[in-house]
Amino acid sequence: MSKPLLEIKDLHVAIDGTEILHGIDLTINAGEVHAIMGTNGSGKSTLTKAIAGHPDYTVTSGDIVYEGKSILEAEPEDRACAGIFLAFQYPVEIPGVSNMYFLRAALNAQRKARGEAEASGAEFLALIKEKAKLMDIDAGLLNRSVNEGFSGGEKKRNEILQLAVLAPTLAVLDETDSGLDIDALKTVATGVNSLRSPERSFLLVTHYQRLLNHIQPDFVHVLLDGRIAKSGGKELALELEDKGYAWLEQTV
């Protein structure tokens, strides 16, 4: 029996006083892969930001329970150290800070928070080499400033590299597939699939069914206007692809 890792209960979220999510219920058990689909503006990104604790997103009612505890009061870094990872739709640039330096600082901050030994230089180097190979990222990219001058595909692959290095318990991917060509999409999917395990859960946010050909979800939810309009198995994604979102709007 798998136990719930993340329980989202009647979640209402607002930005600048405007409510975007109007009561989301979602439970993700350990080891499961859930996909959230929906049109632009349906609240997909808002849901990911609320889970990660972005300060601009206010939870007005409801709860987010992670590993049995409410995390609404937890700072973003505390959530990260507890094992929640968000792959950003638009990864930001940090000029002057090398990718390697940043990743090691992040890994060690998390290890320290969990009371684990920090990674030594040699240990970290071995780890990042292995993961970079997996994500088809060359050494040059590791020494460049975080995301600065990276192509769209490089930025997304860099997000998955961070995911691989930080090895979270819950990985939330916000439209990681958008803007990727088919080869980059395959690389990203390979990276994600290699990280699947009975202890690790995924929440994939996507527009298109395309990604789900490469990463097979256990469950698919369709978000419409701040509510989950329909949930089902992976066949729901195919049905959506076939009939379009308008089909759901009519049935709701």
Binding site: E75, P76, A80, L86, F88, I94, V97, A106, A109
Partner: peptide, 22 residues
């Protein structure tokens, strides 16, 4: 930028410090 670094586990102060040092 600050949120991104915090999401990766750095405290707000360490995040700002990293951006400034960069």
């Amino acid at each position: 930028q600050v949120f991104f670094l915090r999401q990766r586990g750095l405290s707000e102060e360490d995040a700002v410090s990293m951006i400034v040092n960069g």
